[in-house]
């Protein structure tokens, strides 16, 4: 299993990370090593085995429908890199992605 540069760039975009050209080779190598390693899993016959998706033994953990005010707007905006006292502000969207 190999990862090529195109896949690398696609994955980087999905993860919203920049990969500099000089980083590509090392990252390809790292990922390649790990992926080879990871190919091993396909050796195991898992026919009829249910994937394990939840590690908690709890079931039906539901909350009563009550409203509670815990932080106000000032606190909500407190850690924001950019805000105007009412809204969070981010740079313009150049293209929509959803």
């Amino acid at each position: 299993m190999k990862v090529d540069k195109e896949t690398l760039q696609k994955v980087a975009h999905l993860a919203r990370l920049n990969i500099r050209p000089e980083e590509e080779d090392q990252l390809l190598k790292d990922m390649g090593e790990i992926l080879n390693w990871v190919e091993k899993l396909r050796e195991v016959n898992t026919k009829g085995v249910e994937p394990l998706t939840h590690m908690t033994g709890e079931v039906n953990v539901l909350r009563a429908d009550k409203a509670e005010a815990t932080i106000d707007r000032q606190q909500a905006l407190k850690n924001a890199p950019q805000q105007d006292g009412k809204f969070f502000i981010v740079p313009q969207v150049m293209k929509r992605n959803d």
Binding site: V38, L41, R42, V44, T46, V49, L52
Partner: peptide
């Protein structure tokens, strides 16, 4: 399916 689901199955095993 090849990686993630397979890993979840291994987890159960």
């Amino acid at each position: 399916d090849a990686y993630f689901t397979q890993a979840q199955k291994l987890r159960r095993l």
